[in-house]
Design a binder for these strands. Structure first.
Length: 260
DNA sequence: ATGACGCATCGAATGCGA
């Protein structure tokens, strides 16, 4: 069973690339971030034709998330974080068929935070607090759980191309990293770090300054699997190929493979 | 220090991403 996450930075622009990617990578479930589409504009028919059922939670211009699944629509879908009032469409959760029954998938587009001294950073911290509470409750109900998406956090220095120059800046602040560790503390593990990985592995590269060609990136897209799933994780990889497309997203997909 | 690139918005310049 394969699951994946991809920040597509506008599904309207990236739909052809998404369909190409799914044809080459027929994952069982995929969460998307930054669809930037209201629900009435979501490409339901195109994705169904490609074999995927869809659940989505979008808005105009910004944000927007989706959960694609083969073998039926995700069950018990939850949009955003219950009890946390939020104008922004950032989370979608659902149950997909899989290993020994089913897997609870939480797909998140974590706030960017802009800068550590900004109001957006305050929002990011509050959002992370709320998410942790939600994931804790979901884990209690669904031991087989995967939390994945665009976290907008580089958890360690090795997840940034220049940790010295970027020290203390957004995505690398101690506060964000503490939140990342707190998520792990719920009983989750960073699937990517379960395996030997190439050095300087990143999932996002700035569009500017030829950053991708120079591999000046950050690893901010993550797949966290619950302790119950950890024994069945067989691989976790970042697929850089779509970043080489014409008009690519600035993010690459991250794929995890579970036995069964 | 700034901007650089890309996307979205009713129409151009601006906000935002990371």
């Amino acid at each position: 069973m394969k699951l994946a996450t991809w920040n597509v930075n506008s599904l309207a622009v990236r739909l052809p690339q998404l369909l190409d990617w799914l044809a080459a990578n027929p994952v069982d479930a995929l969460v998307l971030q930054e669809t930037k589409l209201t629900d009435d504009k979501f490409p339901v028919a195109e994705l169904q034709a490609a074999g995927y059922a869809v659940a989505f939670h979008g808005q105009k211009t910004y944000n927007g998330v989706a959960l694609l699944s083969r073998g039926g629509t995700a069950a018990d879908v939850v949009k955003n974080i219950p009890g946390f009032a939020d104008e922004q469409a950032r989370v979608i959760t659902g149950t997909v068929g899989g290993v020994r029954g089913s897997v609870r998938v939480v797909g998140g587009y974590f706030p960017n935070g802009q800068a550590p001294d900004s109001d957006k950073f305050v929002y990011k911290m509050a959002w992370l607090d709320a998410l942790r509470g939600f994931v804790q409750a979901e884990l209690a109900a669904h031991p087989q759980l995967v939390l994945m998406g665009d976290f907008n956090i580089a958890p360690e220095d090795r997840d940034a191309w220049d940790p010295v120059a970027l020290a203390g800046t957004i995505h690398l602040t101690p506060e964000e990293r503490t939140h990342f560790q707190a998520l792990l503390g719920l009983g989750l593990v960073d699937a990517f770090r379960l395996f030997e990985q190439p050095p300087k592995s990143y999932s996002w590269w700035d569009y500017r300054m030829l950053a991708f060609r120079k591999n000046q990136g950050l690893r901010i897209d993550h797949v966290l699997v619950s302790d119950a799933l950890k024994p069945v994780v067989q691989a976790c990889t970042i697929d850089r190929l779509p970043r080489k497309n014409e008009r690519p997203s600035d993010h690459a997909p991250v794929v995890v493979e579970l036995a069964g």
